[in-house]
Simulated scan of single mutants.
Amino acid sequence: MNIIVCIKQVPDSTRVKVDPKTGTLIRAGVPSILNPYDHYALEKALAIKAKTGAKVTVLSMGPAQAVAVLRLALALGADEGVLLSSRAFAGSDTWATSYALAMAIRKIGSFDMILCGQMAIDGDTAQTGPGIAFHLGIPQITFCESVDSDGSHAVVKKLIEGGHQILEADLPVLITMTMPVDYAPKYPSFMAAHKAQDKKTVTWTEKEIGADMHKLGLEGSPTRVSRIFPPAARQKGEMFNGSAEEMAAKFVEILKKESFIK
């Protein structure tokens, strides 16, 4: 069984800043992390690997520094890593990105399951995974909290409004994973990270995957963003201690001071 997990290196969401002149993210000096939704998807793929002996390949698109998230994935237990990196990919929206990733998956070859995070925390579009499924012409199941497989079928718990569904799908299938609210990502030990240095990683450009240049980058991106800006800063909240009666009295005092009540 072959599983491909699409992962992305993203800026730490608590430290993102926007250039007021260009409207683009300021990444200089901002620490990068493995997108948490992708981290969760990877852990689910590795759980299936432990059960079935599946091969897990991680795939990412980004600048050369994005190899760091591939290395992290390999240290966690993935078998191989592929990075798409070229100036031709710069400026790609979710449509162009999903096209490039789909072309890379075709080059990787045989696969039974593709796992993606629900969305990237620096975009929140939740479109790249479904786009990959469209380009590959395979079924997809989105917003899944859990996934399991015996090598011939996939069984997922899909979140829906007011509850969840248990769905089963034949392979191949693409699944996007959401995260439980209490999710805490796992990280490898020093020895695991050291041993992972011998695992295979490759970097491909648009030429290696046979991509159409007109479908990449800004030219291949139908999305046009007119403006991007950070949310307005809010005042920090105040913390109070005391009994319920004391807190209630303090709350009433604040409401009166702010003229919400008389």
Rank of each mutant, 00 (worst) to 15 (best):
L136M: 05
E253I: 08
T178K: 15
L218I: 13
I175A: 01
K200P: 06
K195S: 12
L255F: 06
I48F: 06
S110K: 10
I166F: 09
C6Q: 05
Y40V: 10
L255S: 08
D112S: 13
L34A: 00
E206Y: 02
V156P: 01
S226T: 08
V202Y: 07
A244R: 03
M247C: 15
L167P: 05
I141V: 12
L72Q: 08
A196L: 08
V67F: 04
A192W: 04
T223N: 01
L46Q: 05
M213C: 06
V16H: 02
L42I: 02
S98E: 11
R87P: 12
I121H: 01
G77T: 08
F240G: 11
P222F: 07
S92Y: 07
F251A: 15
N35V: 09
K21V: 14
T22A: 07
N35Q: 11
T57A: 07
D198S: 15
G137R: 08
F190I: 12
E258M: 01
T203M: 09
E145T: 13
I175M: 04
V56H: 12
K55P: 05
E208M: 07
R71F: 03
A75T: 09
T125V: 05
A64H: 12
D150I: 03
L174S: 12
Y37V: 09
I261N: 07
L216I: 03
E253N: 06
S110M: 08
T97M: 06
K51P: 01
G137K: 05
M1W: 03
E145K: 13
D198F: 12
P20L: 07
P139I: 06
S146G: 08
G91H: 04
K195R: 15
G151E: 05
N2K: 15
G220S: 11
T22P: 02
R106D: 05
G163Y: 11
I160H: 02
G162D: 00
T52W: 04
S13K: 08
